[in-house]
């Protein structure tokens, strides 16, 4: 028996996910233009593995397979994983990461909507902890042709050190830690572009464009991106003003690493994130602040993934404590 309401808005999870995928395309295009087409190979691998793993688990759990795959959430997870990883990461790391995300993080917790942690970020953390060396090998912008990238991904080439470079964040960190001098001195290295990593700052711009599309289409609300960017930038600004020689500028932090990808595509994951409007602000700002602190003082150069997971843990509390007052319970009864 079907009960009211008998009419529904034409909206569906799959259309939401499809919008997210489309919005990722500007960033991917920039990636291909600046760094090379190797990323597409990993994207393809990840998509196939994600869909296969999703289908397998749904089958094992006795759930309708097509319905589960049709929501496209597995594909979104797969794409986000690949976009966080170095584009020349060996194919089997991609496969393990996707399997971890889909099977362990998503389905072991009960499937779509039930996972307390962001699958892509757990996969990233698991891989950076498990394979720290392979996960820190980034190709310099425009430095590798497709042939080389393919060789690296499919595992033919072993001498990876020779062709890769540190990311901007990594180079900054190493530079400052080994006492190579000040920010300005470090920034003269070829890894750096105008704002962030050379080439990679364009990719960040691509994500920004995609993110604005999502905002415009109302797939995401403004709360999370704004709070994340403000959280990251203001913390960075505080330290930068305190000592501009030892702490990079807020703009550098926004333009390098996964900041833009995170701002629009990762912290905005509805399942593992906060849902109330105030909760969203706290959640995303918390990620921004933690990400900065991990970048500046932690053991890894990029801290967003860890920050996301840490804030994921706080989500139930945040959501509970930030419930908006219900109708009639607002403190002001009269306008």
């Amino acid at each position: 028996m079907i009960h009211s309401p008998y009419i529904r808005k034409p909206a569906s999870v799959s259309s939401v996910m499809l919008t997210v995928l489309l919005a990722l395309i500007p960033g991917i295009a920039m990636y291909v233009w600046q760094v090379g087409a190797g990323i597409l190979v990993n994207l393809l691998i990840a998509t196939i593995v994600a869909v296969a793993a999703e289908a397998l688990v749904l089958k094992l759990r006795g759930r309708p397979v097509l319905l589960g795959i049709g929501d496209l959430s597995a594909v979104v997870t797969a794409w986000l994983i690949v976009l966080c990883f170095p584009p020349i990461v060996p194919w089997w790391i991609t496969v393990i990461a996707v399997l971890v995300a889909i099977i362990a993080v998503k389905h072991l917790y009960g499937g779509l909507g039930q996972n307390p942690f962001n699958p892509a970020m757990v996969a990233y953390c698991a891989m950076i902890v498990a394979y720290p060396s392979l996960m820190s090998q980034w190709p310099p912008a425009g430095g590798l042709d497709f042939q080389t990238q393919l060789g690296l991904i499919l595992g033919g080439m072993r001498d990876i050190d020779a062709v890769t470079a540190a990311t901007a964040l990594d180079a900054m960190r190493t530079g400052l830690r080994t006492g190579a001098g000040t920010i300005d001195a470090v920034m003269t290295q070829p890894t750096f572009g105008t704002l962030g990593g050379r080439g990679y700052e364009w990719i960040a711009l691509g994500y920004l464009v995609g993110g604005l599309i999502l905002l415009f289409r109302r797939t995401i609300t403004w709360h999370m991106p704004v709070a994340f960017i403000v959280g990251l930038a203001s913390t960075a600004c505080l330290f930068w003003l305190f000592n501009p020689a030892q702490f990079a500028s807020p703009l550098f932090h926004l333009a390098s690493g996964g900041a833009m990808l995170a701002a629009f595509f990762i912290v905005t994951d509805p399942v593992s994130g906060a849902t109330t409007p105030r909760g969203k602000l706290i959640f995303a700002a918390g990620i921004g602040i933690l990400a900065y602190l991990i970048r500046a003082f932690g053991a890894f150069p990029e801290g967003i993934a860890f920050a996301v997971l840490l804030m994921n843990m706080c989500v139930p509390l945040i959501d509970m404590k930030t419930q908006p007052p219900v109708f009639g319970q607002r403190s002001r009864k009269l306008p």
Binding site: A104, A126, V129, A130, Y131, P132, L134
Partner: peptide
């Protein structure tokens, strides 16, 4: 073999 370090690290113990 590339060591799957997370297995030896504390999270691996829980998994």
């Amino acid at each position: 073999y590339h060591d799957f370090l997370i297995a030896i690290l504390p999270p691996g113990a829980f998994f």
